[in-house]
Amino acid sequence: MLPPVIAGVDGSAESLAAAEWAAREAVRRDRPLRLVHAWNWHPRQGAGEPATAAQRYLGRRALRQAEDRIRRTCPGAKLDDEQIEGPATTALLRAAACADLLVLGSRGLSGFTGFLIGSVALGVVARATTPVVLVREGEEASDEHLSADDGSPSVRTGYRDVVLGIDLGDPCDEVIEFAFEAARVRGARLRVVHAWQTPSPPGLGPGEVGLVNGPEQADEWLAFLTAVLNQWRDKYPEVEVAETVTEGRARSVLVRAATGASLLVVGRRMTERPAGPRIGPITHAAIHHAGCPVAVVPHE
């Protein structure tokens, strides 16, 4: 059986939006959809079995609410569900280990709610070995599509761009492939964005791009980006690709580029640090400030 697309639900508005987005993505990828609700029972609380029964009831209600919404809006999804016992971060990571993709709800700049309280959601993103997509409250199917000719929202028009933020100092195959595949299943254009800043003279070596002036640097970066993408163009000939190199801070450039996109794709290096896993400042800015769903793709 193909690995499913998994959505975490807790009854909140953002988790319902995430579940609906996950259903559409499962159909696009021809994958089953699994809804999961994480709950945590602590025997030391003294509530015992009644507390467990209450938590299971609330979990069942949250799952049923999400199921009803998906059956109305995305009847083609092949759907099942389960309740998983926490702690929430551990439970979601365990579920994600067998998934094609994990989808969670997000309030963007306002943080996360429900069982996705800040540290939980960020902990999942920072530790997951599977791509995680964060979907904001209020996301609807029409938000992924271009407006109709009269400017009104539509689900019958083509998809908006998929945007890939790429670091040409460390272009990662897993991240690039995820973005190309996301564009392919949507029939969307892939817009690949690289932000560059002129390095200080002490950091330069012979022949480095930073030795030339601004316009020439942009041309050099663009040529490098085109070379990196050539093999992926050959692998995905049906995907239209547009490259952009912009001078500026990567986090600001990327958030601006995601305006009006259907999906923003960023990477996260799976490197354990003394202080524990980190998502990095660019990914952190993307998941808090981008106005579209954000896919965080782990890589070595």
Rank of each mutant, 00 (worst) to 15 (best):
L2E: 07
P4R: 03
D10L: 09
A13N: 08
A18Q: 06
A19K: 05
A19Y: 09
W21H: 04
W21M: 07
A26S: 15
A26I: 12
D30P: 07
P32V: 05
L33R: 00
L33K: 05
V36T: 15
H37G: 13
H42Q: 13
R44P: 03
G46T: 14
A47Q: 12
A47R: 12
A47L: 15
G48I: 07
E49F: 03
A53D: 14
Q55T: 12
R56D: 11
G59H: 12
L63V: 03
R64A: 13
A66M: 07
E67V: 14
D80M: 07
E82Q: 08
Q83A: 09
P87H: 10
T90A: 15
L93H: 11
R94M: 06
A99M: 06
D100E: 15
L102V: 12
L102H: 11
S106Y: 04
T113G: 06
G114Q: 10
T130Q: 14
P131I: 10
V133L: 02
V133R: 05
G138E: 06
G138F: 10
E139L: 08
A141I: 11
D150R: 00
G151P: 03
P153F: 14
R156N: 01
G158P: 03
V162Y: 00
V162E: 02
G169V: 14
I176H: 04
E177I: 09
E177Q: 10
A179T: 04
F180W: 07
L190Y: 02
L190Q: 04
V192Y: 00
V193A: 05
H194Q: 11
W196M: 01
Q197K: 02
T198M: 05
S200E: 09
G205P: 06
P206W: 01
P215S: 06
W221N: 10
A223W: 05
T226M: 04
V228D: 12
E238C: 07
E238V: 02
E243F: 02
T246Y: 01
E247Y: 03
L254K: 00
A258H: 02
T259F: 01
T259Y: 00
S262K: 03
M270R: 15
T271Y: 06
P277L: 08
G280R: 13
G280M: 12
I282K: 15
H288Y: 01
C292R: 02
